[in-house]
Amino acid sequence: MQKSAGSTDGGLLLEAQNLTKAYPAADGSSVEVLRDVSLTVGQGEFVAIVGPSGSGKSTLLYCLAGLEPYTSGRVLLRGRQLDQLAPKALAAIRRDEVGFVFQSFNLIPSLTAHQNVALPARLAHRAVSASAVDEVLASVGLQGREGFRPGQLSGGQQQRVAIARVLAASPSLVFADEPTGALDTQAGAAVLELLRRVAGGERSVVMVTHDLEAAARADRVLVLRDGMVHRELLRPTASEVLEALTAAADEASR
């Protein structure tokens, strides 16, 4: 299995060019949260985004995923520019090619774990067998909990249901915003291992994280600072990520 480290050798899946995002501020002016961000995600790649709190990581992720409009620049998914797509086409992309793991509020409270996992397939009118869903849930360690509603599951279990949903739908691109943020070390490691398994082959993962160990599992780490890509690390160790982060924080505080 070949890992293209952001190169364009046939496997380019997602591309952001000169992305900027500004939010209106209270006094009528606007605050630039993303400035001129350019990046690529290759097929099968696992990319982590790290950076100080407020540096724009989540904003970048949501812009890349088409869940938040950007101010200028462009995002291309398999060559299609997100801001030029009609709502219908965007919905089709979300149905067929993209999966999400949010930090919280991942699941629909009135649906069981099983129903939540099967939801993307249902929306896409794809047939998915009940036993396949049960299998995926079992693979994230939730056998026997298929009929539980989110309110009856712990935070970590809910997060694993969200990952099972991604596994069952098998989209080509998965976005995850601090998927381990609310979990203890052990549960977090389990969730990461699952995400790591998702990436590879045809599937890519873009993950925002605060967790150095988590970032160190990625093929590539982007260090964000003040809305700009400050550094890019290839298969770094946890201490290399820490170093880059500290440098970013130091410069930011100056």
Binding site: K88, A91, R94, L119, A124
Partner: peptide, 18 residues
């Protein structure tokens, strides 16, 4: 609750009509 569910369904590819 309904809004949050709306956002989740949209993220999963449900259209406005749905």
């Amino acid at each position: 609750t309904r809004e949050q569910e709306t956002a989740l369904v949209q993220a999963a590819g449900g259209g406005r009509g749905l």
